[in-house]
Design a binder for these strands. Structure first.
Lengths: 241, 241
DNA sequence: CGTCAGTTTGAAGCGAATCAAGAACAGTGG
DNA sequence: CCACTGTTCTTGATTCGCTTCAAACTGACG
């Protein structure tokens, strides 16, 4: 249980870091967040957090773990659309009545906290909650931006470019939420998962990661990939956007 | 000028068809649309309608022509994210203050009509404008859905699957807007453009289209691809979603 | 210690990119 | 009306990136 309360505390810190990265928070904003009732949702790796086509009315902050949004075709092919890490808001749409257009699945054990009340109370109230009201807009914007990046990666990039591009995105997101270590961060993802996100076979992901390992950009361990040199990562991407 | 007024009349019909496909329109809705001031925007093929990073505060309906949203990488690689046809709303976001995350470009000569006033007057007014207030939400939802489809196509499908999948989407959109002929519709797109949308080389698009032509699903002419058999199109897609 | 998920390796093959050149066609100006 | 131009489409040959298949290896875990 000490472990769980640490995950909660770290997760809350990540939420603050995440929100502050997109909007300046005022006292009213902070109070609203702090007074969040601790309505926790816990799921094991592999569990579904929200099914396709269910009402998107249960937004949650991720406190710990990795979650993704993905589509599965008839024949079993799976495409991951987006990742969510600690501090991120999952299952949110500003449009009332919207339904989930993809399945939300836990890639690791995950802990979330209900955000519906907080959002309902603060959204569209820029005078009372200047930080939060703006944050919800920006967060939705960023999710759209990431979807676009995903199209570009899958449509126009080579394997090593896709890997680097995604890693840079995730590195920046960790960095701004105050997560990860000084030189990088850890992805608790299997090579299969990475392949499903990048439109590559597991085998080819493996070979691509080997190259990055040789270039001292990453380290790998079972079920984990660690970015160890942010500078080299950026350098290896000169050519791309 | 007779031509232009025909494009306007046909375009308005397409707007009605398009809107009715997602929401039942009431008299108030219809009046609001009909009383749209004719603030037209005309652009030639190849022109940019809206640049990246400019404020997304000039939503417009397409009256005629094809428009796309696309991203260009440093080295010139281009990825088309989405297409807009007659009746579609382009450059719209419900989030105030948002900026364009991609460039909006005209693929053919295009004629648009300003929709900012109409939207400002009707959105968030489900009591006075039940149809339109709902339509704006659904339209935004559909744009997100199409982006997701684009990720899946580029990430998880083979060339012929990508082509068929995109064509089916565009066929359905034409059909519901009352456009196209009975058995299909015309895409005024070069094979290069199609390749930029589907993440394929022009040459490979060409060979893929040849196959579809042999299967009697499409006809091609210079700068155009015509879907001629909707039934065969669907049949060829059994396996996919 | 066996099991199982995840990683790694090699060999073979396929799908798609690339390169290069030619053909079809629309538009232009003489 | 025709030669000229530029764009788009088409074709063949070749190369390359990636997938597939199959098997071995590694490490965590009960």
């Amino acid at each position: 249980m000490t472990d769980k309360s640490k995950r909660i505390a770290d997760g809350k810190a990540a939420i603050f870091g995440r929100l502050e990265s997109v909007a300046r928070l005022f006292d009213t904003d902070r109070e609203a967040i702090t007074s969040l009732p601790l309505s926790l949702v816990e799921r094991a790796a592999g569990q579904e957090l929200q099914a396709v086509d269910t009402p998107l009315n249960e937004p949650r902050f991720v406190l710990s773990g990795w979650i993704c949004r993905c589509v599965t075709l008839q024949d079993g092919r799976r495409q991951i659309l987006d990742f969510y890490i600690a501090g991120d808001l999952v299952g949110y749409s500003s449009r009332p009545g919207t339904r989930a257009k993809a399945s939300y699945q836990c890639l690791t054990d995950a802990l979330c906290i209900d955000a519906a009340d907080l959002i309902a109370r603060t959204q569209g109230q820029p005078l009372r909650y200047p930080g939060l009201a703006a944050a919800w807009l920006t967060i939705e914007d960023e999710i759209e931006q990431r979807l676009m990046d995903q199209v570009v990666r899958n449509g126009r990039m080579l394997a090593h470019e896709r890997v680097l591009h995604l890693m840079r995105e995730l590195d920046r997101r960790h960095h701004r939420a105050g997560l990860g270590n000084g030189d990088g961060f850890v992805m608790p993802l299997t090579q299969e998962i990475l392949g499903e996100a990048l439109g590559l076979s597991t085998v080819h992901v493996n070979r691509t990661l080997q190259q990055l390992r040789r270039e001292q950009i990453i380290r790998t361990a079972l079920g984990k990939i660690e970015i160890v040199n942010r500078r080299l990562l950026e350098a290896a991407m000169q050519t791309e956007d």
